[in-house]
Write a protein that binds this DNA or RNA. Structure first.
Lengths: 224, 224
DNA sequence: CTTCTATGATGAGAATTTTCATATTCAAAA
DNA sequence: TTTTGAATATGAAAATTCTCATCATAGAAG
């Protein structure tokens, strides 16, 4: 489970990071909005801990953007202000929980666990992208309500693309994801081509659109 | 592959980060010794790029600590000084390479690759159980110094057994581990039998002992 | 001790995954 | 614009993985 901690009080941020690391969460820290945006652009997290007052702006702006981009991360707002307006605004903007500072580590942990669990039960079961509907649990995929059979690798590929839509994904990242192993730089990853070809073919056969753009020399991007 | 860039010239640090990110390394930046120590306390990297002259001290001190703590990271010293003493001292303190500034990106890349490779091929990546020797990186397996070819699943199975030796492992745990997916209670996991059979056969063919006990109705246990 | 049932083992075949040789396409250099 | 080298696409073959039918065995029940 990966957590992004957006918090400009460095001492607090490091303390949270260390504590959560102990609990086997993978943590990354962002001390500014800009830093947070960078990290969110490159990575997907399971949960984001968001301080509202940051040196370069309000966390609420970031929250609005994330909501707008339909990010899947659970967001817990950490705020010292503890104003009702912020809390309401935060939850309206799609935050999943609000934790006033100061808080106990155990409480933080409990909230994180609950947010991740809730997210998982809401979003994890089905994912939709235009005419494509994926049930992550049963692993069924429908295109225009017509069911198609994908192999495991094709399914994984589709899910990975859709959950990273609009982002550029390198071939080696795909290789790593599909093989479930660190991608050796000096291996060739031609099997990725094969699975992409087969996935494309199956989607087209049932009248799906091709959302997968090839970015020569760079990778792939799934977008409308 | 994760790289920690310890470098106080921010522009250079960002440039390296961007370049290495392109090459599919995950990079983190530290601009001070303190920052670097924090990050090293929380994370493990595959390679550390270390500038020697940092605002809050000399990188050599950090190197000494890392050496003392027997950290596994490969360390490449980046230095503008290019003094023979620093180079000697750095290598004595356990650095793996020394790259005088300015350098070309391609050279940096080559050094990183070489350092990671060297680190990875030493015996830190091998696991031994009696006559069986496994290199986790190259994925070679030797039985009585004789190399055998295992498929990916057979290899994974062997590693899983040996790293859980003397413990009882259920069939569904094996299924989950091999498939890299939560094991569906209502699936049958007969493929586990197949891989176990094939692994056993290959090990016996080269004169290995059978360390795998079947616990009827319970699971398996790897023990001498 | 025998029978019965569920679990595990096995071989063969089906399906999937990966590799490989070849063709095509892209973008930089000439 | 044309050429060139590298990246991507593709079909088919090779290798691996999974399924299935059948057999063997452990342990419970009679």
């Amino acid at each position: 489970m990966k957590i992004l901690i957006i918090e400009d009080e460095k001492e607090l941020a490091y303390a949270m990071g260390a504590y959560l690391a102990d609990e086997n969460y993978l943590c990354e820290l962002a001390f500014t909005l800009e830093d947070a945006r960078q990290k969110l652009a490159c990575h997907t997290y399971d949960c984001v801990l968001l301080d509202l007052m940051l040196p370069d702006g309000s966390g609420l702006d970031l929250l609005a953007t994330m909501n707008h981009q339909q990010r899947l991360e659970g967001v817990i707002i950490l705020s010292a202000k503890n104003s009702v307006e912020d809390k309401v605004k935060g939850l309206q903007l799609g935050a999943d929980d609000y934790l006033p500072k100061p808080f106990h580590q155990s409480e933080l942990l409990a909230r994180i666990y609950s947010v991740i669990r809730r997210k998982n039960f809401n979003n994890l079961n089905t994912v939709q992208f235009e005419e494509i509907e994926i049930n992550l649990l049963s692993k069924n995929v429908k295109v225009n309500d017509q069911e198609i059979n994908l192999t495991r690798k094709e399914f994984d590929l589709l899910v990975f693309f859709i959950s990273n839509k609009n982002k550029v994904i390198s071939k080696s990242a795909l290789a790593e994801y599909l093989s479930g192993d660190i991608a050796d730089m000096f291996d060739n990853h031609d099997f990725v081509y094969a699975h992409i070809k087969n996935l494309k073919k199956k989607l087209l056969e049932v009248g799906g659109n091709n959302y997968l753009k090839t970015l020569y020399g760079v990778g792939y991007k799934w977008e409308k």
